[in-house]
Every structure is written in structure tokens, then in C-alpha cells.
Design a protein around this nucleic acid. Structure first.
Length: 584
RNA sequence: GGCCCCGUAGCUCAGGGGAUAGAGCAACCGCCUCCUAAGCGGUAGGUCAUAGGUUCGAAUCCUAUCGGGGCCGCCA
């Protein structure tokens, strides 16, 4: 199967011809072609594609860029796909493709269906995407929602581009916060027994723990009433974290996110795995007992120098060495994290991705240092920081009128606007830019709302397909793919096809950079091209997709519309959004 | 004080070594006897925070400065 990415295909052609120029003595031997690019030009007036080959090679070849470009142009136009090759500016070579090349794109989309744009740049590399990983102490909130959507879409994107992806959730069930959870549930349990309770600082007063108090009462009766922590803490903690994870799983399911692995921090304890990871670091000479400098700036009131077990993360670019054991000998939270990432390496993952909230930015360097140390630099770790979501309603800042807790949950969002809208909107910003989420605007049916705009394009195609089928025409992808596309020649139509041809390239760039938002932006652009063409049909009957009573004239146009729908649904599938057949 | 992210049109943001920097909103002017006008076309709007540097070429890379946000012993 040949490469359906038209850009890499043409780049291949350029490289072939450059090679032939070397053979012919028109270029010196030993040139590095790796920086040669074939891209869409910034200004479409310049052509369909542009290559920088001549400019990149001019210096190493000791030739003038325009001379190289001119010779390359001669060779390229000999290819059937290239209609024109013009030297421009400082040495750009602008390529114009023949219409046949564009027609092949339509056929390819319809033949490959949602597989169009799928690639194997990942080469089956095993990648672990860890995301959400919220503490199991309550329901997921908006911030987690963005991280969940991002991680899931990134995972789908990587799968689509040929990676072997595992979606993973790290359950922080080993630290002090799950003890706090247990105590909070215990208070609800006492409450269920009719006691008046207060929630002191450092406990979770949220209503969501009430049912757990009741359930605990139903399970153990009054066995824990009036008993010291030692009696009930372990069991209540286990019960409570299990229930919280049920809750979190339900939240994720409501959003349409399914994890492959839930990894328990607690499962690392008492197994020697934390010790094992640290032992490996010790063997590498990266562990020592020492005292850290006090932090610069505002020093904590009670700061005093203490000896701790430290990891030489500074050898891997961190700012200070990081404690693994507290002065009392217990683990810091960093230690199990190190062991956890070591476990990922041992499980054979060749690439790791962590999706964190932006407030964990200070954690990035030490985690990368740990993974570099444990894998001898062989396993890359990319950490994506997810910026805040700012909630609005009708343009006004939105606050949940929730007693205690007072945070907006994933459920609040999904119940109001649905999972599809939530997901799409969450991906309309780069991960490291703050996101404004307006409960009213995201439901608005207008072009201000990108979700609607993209869905509307898909619905319009569906409408065309319904009508065509209503006429009794066979408009299956298979038969449409076999059409003669010669009537697809108008610039407005080719604009749409050009955008379709960019899809595989968009997937590759998005996957390589771990940037799923590029998919959302692409879909918006594709929808815009489609809507533009649709409207041209108002003036020019030739450009309409459907001409009642003229199946022959309609079929190639229907094929084009259908190709748009196929790519939109492929893109939406990566984002985890269901395409709509109609908007009503 | 240190580290990280951000600074692009009036507003919200794309673009992250290439040619005259893009889109949406807001403003102004147009387009419905015709596949959903829930849409489309056009006009206007920019010293890409600032100053240096690297490069044939910088919004993009480097350094410094200014502005906004986040994090900053053993909390997770």
C-alpha cells in the first residue's frame, strides 16, 4: 500500500530527483537531505506545495539556491503529478499539482474510509500514557476533566499514528491523604449513627462521603463507634478508596474515557519494589545522605536542616537534589513515584508520557531525571502540563453553589453539556494555555462555537447522503470511489480537497508533538472549507452536491462531500466525539 | 531569590526557522424563489512585550529586561 500522505509522497519525489542530480553531477555527493521539506505554502497563491530544498542545499553544495531550484524544477515537472514548478523568492520551489493528483485523494479517502490518515510513524512503539491520576479522595473536578480528555485524545491520536498505547491511571492510595479520607468517612459513619459531627481542618467535608458513612454503618453496624483509629483505620481506608475509585471510574465512563490499567501506589509497598528502584539508583552512585540548602525566598517558619536520603537529580538537569526518604526514615511521595516509573520501564514501555496539572510543574525535572537515570537515558519521558479551566456562564464567571467543597465536578460539566461537547471544547486550546469554558457558549448553535460548526458540516453531508439515497441512488463509499472525478475542477472544490490532503500530515505532526488540539483546529478548518463550498452552490448550480434528476452530474460531487464527512468522523473519533447526522 | 508556562489584531486564540504573520468574535458593507442563511463573501484592524544575539532568513532559536500566572524542605 503506497503512502497516502501526499506531502511525504511528493517529498519522496523531490528526494529521488535530488539523488539523480547527484548522480548526474549537478549536485556534489554527500549532501544531507534531512532538512528538505515539502509543505503547504503559507500563502495558497504560491501553489499547492513548496520545498525549501534549494535553500537548504545551497550552502553545503556551494551553489546558488535559485540555480539548484531551477534544475530541480525541470526534473519535477516531468512527473505526471506535478503541473508546474516555479522558482520564487529566495529559492523556494513552488509546486502546483495536476487535478488528477487531487482526484486521487478523494478516491483514497473513500477507499480507506476512516483509515485514511492512519500511519505507522509510531512503528508499534510501546508508549504508556499516564493521565488523570487524581487522588482517590473525591469525585473528579473540571481540571481533571481537561486532563482526562487530553490524555485520552492523545492516546487515540498515537494509536492512529502507529503507536502501541496503554492508558494508565496511577492511584495515589499510599499517602497521608487516604488516611484523611478514611477519617472523613469515619465521621460520616458516626453521623449515620446519629452523632453530631464537625469536620476539622484537614478533613474532607463534602457531601459525597455521606453515602459511604451509611454504607459503612450497614456493613459493620456500631462496631467502630467509640473505637480508636487503630481498630478501624485500615479497613475504612480500604473501603473508602475502593468506593472513591468506583466513583472516579464512573466519572471517567461518563466522559467516555476507559483506562487500560489502574496502578495502585499501595501495591508497591511491602513488596521491595520501592527499595529495588532505589537500590538501582544507589548502584549508579546517585543516592546519598545529605542536607539540603534552605529554599531561597520565603523560608518556611519551621525550617531546620535535617539529614535525608537524596537523589542526585541535579546530574540530570534538576535544580536541587530531591529527598526520597524523610528525616524520620519514611518515604517521601517522590520515592514511590520513582518506583512506579521504574515499573513502567520494567514493563517494557519504550516511551512514557505523563499528563499533569500545571500546578505540578515543579515536579517535571525530578521525574525526568529519575526516568533518565533508571533507563540510562533510553526511555524518553514527556510531561504535558494541563493549564487551568476557567468556567463561565453567559460570560460571567461561574461558581458552583455547593456547600463545602465548592468545586465544579466533571459530572457537573458532563451533565450540563454532554461528553461530546465537553471533549471537543477541552481540545480547542493548547494544553499549556488556559481554557475558558462557558456553559452557554459551548451549547450555542452558531459558528462562534467550533463544536457546532464542525458537527454542522458533518450533518450537512449526512443530509445530502440521505437525499441521494432517497432518490434511489447507490452512494456507497465503494461505488463513489470509482467515479470519474473530472467534474471536480473548480477552485472552491479543490480547496476542500487540498484540506483533505493535509489530514495525514496533520495527524503526523500532532502525534509527533503530542498535541491533540491540532486535530480540533484542523477539523474546524476543514469544516470552514466545506461550508464555503456549500455556499458557493447557492450562486453556481455546478457546485451543488445534489442535482435532483441528474445522478451522473451529482455523483462526483457527492463523493467529495462524503470524503469530507469521512475525515471529519475520523478526526472526531480521535477526539472521542460522535459525529452528528443531523442538528435538530 | 530560583525554576516552569505565557505575552501575536480592540477581545479570544492558532502558527513555534522560511516568502506580504492567520482564524473566530466585535465593527462596517453585501448574499436566502436555489442541497438546513444554524451558513457564506468582502472591508477595516499588527513595531508578533522590549533590547540585543545566532542565521542566507527569526513571531519561531539563544541571552537579558519588563509584564501576567504557577510551583518552590520531609503536603500529595
Amino acid at each position: 500500500m503506497h503512502d497516502m500522505n501526499l506531502f511525504s509522497e511528493i517529498r519522496g519525489l523531490v528526494l529521488d530527483q535530488l539523488g539523480k542530480m547527484v548522480e548526474a553531477g549537478e549536485l556534489p555527493e554527500g549532501l544531507d537531505f534531512s532538512n528538505v521539506k515539502v509543505e503547504p505554502p503559507r500563502d495558497p497563491m504560491h501553489g499547492d506545495m513548496a520545498t525549501n530544498a534549494a535553500m537548504v542545499l545551497a550552502r553545503p553544495a556551494a551553489m546558488k539556491p535559485r540555480d539548484i531550484a531551477a534544475r530541480l524544477a525541470e526534473r519535477l515537472v516531468a512527473d505526471a503529478r506535478i503541473a508546474a514548478a516555479d522558482v520564487a523568492g529566495p529559492g523556494f520551489l513552488n509546486l502546483r499539482l495536476g487535478v488528477e493528483a487531487w482526484h486521487e485523494v478523494i478516491a483514497a479517502v473513500l477507499t480507506e474510509g476512516k483509515g485514511f490518515g492512519r500511519s505507522n510513524i509510531g512503528g508499534g512503539t510501546r508508549v504508556n500514557v499516564e493521565f488523570v491520576s487524581a487522588n482517590p479522595t473525591g469525585p473528579l473536578h473540571v481540571g481533571h476533566t481537561r486532563g482526562a480528555v487530553f490524555g485520552d485524545a492523545l492516546s487515540s491520536l498515537l494509536e492512529f499514528a502507529g503507536w502501541d498505547v496503554t492508558r494508565e491511571y496511577y492511584i495515589n492510595d499510599g499517602g497521608a491523604q487516604v488516611d484523611v479520607l478514611a477519617r472523613s468517612v469515619y465521621l460520616r459513619y458516626l453521623e449515620a449513627h446519629g452523632e453530631a459531627v464537625e469536620f476539622p481542618e484537614g478533613t474532607y467535608p463534602g457531601d459525597y462521603l455521606k453515602p459511604l458513612g451509611e454504607e459503612l454503618k450497614a456493613r459493620v453496624g456500631d462496631a467502630y463507634v467509640g473505637q480508636p483509629e487503630a481498630v478501624w483505620l485500615d479497613e475504612v481506608r480500604e473501603f473508602a478508596t475502593a468506593r472513591m475509585m468506583d466513583l472516579i471510574r464512573e466519572d471517567l465512563a461518563a466522559l467516555g474515557v476507559r483506562m487500560d490499567v489502574f496502578f495502585s501506589e499501595r501495591s508497591l509497598y511491602g513488596t521491595g519494589r520501592i527499595e529495588g528502584a532505589l537500590e538501582l539508583l544507589r548502584e549508579k552512585g546517585l543516592i546519598y545522605e545529605g542536607v539540603l540548602e534552605p529554599p531561597k525566598g520565603k523560608v518556611p517558619e519551621d525550617w531546620e536542616p535535617r539529614v535525608q536520603t537524596l537523589f542526585r537529580s541535579t546530574e540530570f538537569g534538576d535544580d536541587v537534589d530531591r529527598p526520597l526518604k524523610k528525616s524520620d526514615g519514611s518515604w517521601t511521595y517522590f520515592a514511590p513515584d520513582v518506583a512506579y516509573h521504574y515499573d513502567k520501564i520494567l514493563r517494557g514501555f519504550e516511551e512514557l508520557i505523563d499528563v499533569f496539572g500545571a500546578d505540578h510543574g515543579g515536579y517535571v525535572k525530578r521525574m525526568k531525571a529519575a526516568v533518565a537515570a533508571l533507563s540510562d537515558g533510553k526511555v524518553p519521558l514527556d510531561i504535558k502540563l494541563i493549564q487551568l479551566v476557567r468556567l463561565f456562564k453567559g460570560g460571567e464567571p461561574f461558581k458552583m453553589s455547593k456547600r463545602a467543597g465548592n468545586f465544579v465536578t466533571l459530572r457537573d460539566v458532563v451533565d450540563r453539556v454532554g461528553p461530546d461537547v465537553t471533549r471537543f471544547v477541552m481540545l480547542t486550546r493548547k494544553n499549556d494555555a488556559p481554557l475558558d469554558f462557558d456553559f452557554d457558549k459551548v451549547l450555542e448553535q452558531s459558528k462562534d462555537n467550533p463544536v457546532f460548526y464542525v458537527q454542522y458540516a458533518h450533518a450537512r453531508v449526512s443530509s445530502v447522503m440521505r437525499k441521494a439515497r432517497g432518490f434511489g441512488w447507490d452512494v456507497s463509499d465503494q461505488t463513489l470511489a470509482a467515479e470519474d472525478f473530472a467534474p471536480i475542477a473548480h477552485e472552491a472544490e479543490i480547496d476542500v480537497v487540498r484540506k483533505l490532503a493535509e489530514w495525514p500530515r496533520t495527524v503526523e505532526i500532532a502525534a509527533r508533538n503530542h498535541e491533540p488540539h491540532r486535530i480540533a483546529f484542523y477539523l474546524y478548518e476543514l469544516a470552514a472549507e466545506f461550508h464555503a463550498l456549500w455556499n458557493r452552490g447557492n450562486d453556481l448550480a455546478d457546485l451543488r452536491f445534489l442535482r435532483e434528476g441528474d445522478e451522473a452530474a451529482s455523483r462526483p460531487k457527492i463523493a467529495l462531500a462524503r470524503a469530507v464527512a469521512v475525515v471529519i468522523s475520523a478526526g472526531l473519533a480521535i477526539l472521542g466525539v460522535k459525529p452528528l447526522e443531523e442538528m435538530r
